[in-house]
Design a protein around this nucleic acid. Sequence first.
DNA 1: TTTTTAGTTCTGCAAATACAGAACTAAAAA
DNA 2: TTTTTAGTTCTGTATTTGCAGAACTAAAAA
Lengths: 157, 157
Amino acid sequence: MSEFTLSEKQKDLLEQLGVFLESRGWQPAVGRILGLLIISESEELTFDDVRETLHLSKSATSTALNLLLNTGKVEYFTKPGDRKRYFKVKKIVLKDMAYEEHKKRCTFTNLLKEVYAQKKNKESAICQSFKEALDYFEFMNNEFFKLFKKWESTKKS
Amino acid sequence: MSEFTLSEKQKDLLEQLGVFLESRGWQPAVGRILGLLIISESEELTFDDVRETLHLSKSATSTALNLLLNTGKVEYFTKPGDRKRYFKVKKIVLKDMAYEEHKKRCTFTNLLKEVYAQKKNKESAICQSFKEALDYFEFMNNEFFKLFKKWESTKKS
DNA sequence: TTTTTAGTTCTGCAAATACAGAACTAAAAA
DNA sequence: TTTTTAGTTCTGTATTTGCAGAACTAAAAA
């Protein structure tokens, strides 16, 4: 029985994070685990910390943690003379998620370009506003990388 | 029996669009209908055009179209002496979606701020990299808004 | 050597989802 | 007045999802 608990505020934030992560395609339990690892005060949690705090079964905990490991969101380490695994979120997890969203937007934009390309009557009102939105998307995607660079430089100075 | 058909290329694009829309939380049939209205060459489609092209039941078609109407993605008009409804995507649908994504990112960023706020040991390594990512998110959100303004102005000139 | 620990993997099921089909409605046509 | 058109709404169900529980495994401890 591990002694790990969450404050009410933390529980509330965890739930909100979980719902958000679900909306990005993670299953509930996976989202809760990732959320827990992000929110919890202690940097690393054991398998049983996670299982007991979230009231999950061993199988659900195991499967979800391994999914998070395989997708690079989480890592673990062990302590000498201790067979338990200590799980923690990877540092890059948030930026990673942002980048994945960006890539998804680019893919979507390219899809829209194809849709536009196959339109026969490009002078129609609907097609013109479509083109306008498409240009906007491309503009935004291109600016994203510039922003990234800008951020990197302001961080250094 | 309506005479409306899609090319193979259009079918392929429709499927890709549908899958993307599903990943953004729309149900399959809704995503396919929205995709169809975006892709189809003719600007407006009738209830039966949609139903037959996508092989949907009347109930599914009706429910999905009404959902799209209620969420402002689609509109319809009628023709004098014709009781059919003619459905078309709203012009703003793509920019709308982009804006909704942006709002969602802002909400998420605020949630992360709350998470950071309740951290007790803000000097820990994990907390510092968290803060870094958070600052990056805020920076990006602000810049995105500026970009939007920039885009609007270049469009006018 | 047996037992315990720390999980993993497989099987099954409860709940949610997403749609079909049938029954229905309201307006227009015959 | 009856029938047809153009849907809508309700009910049932096949499919999918997400997880629990049980059986299993491999290493360490007793």
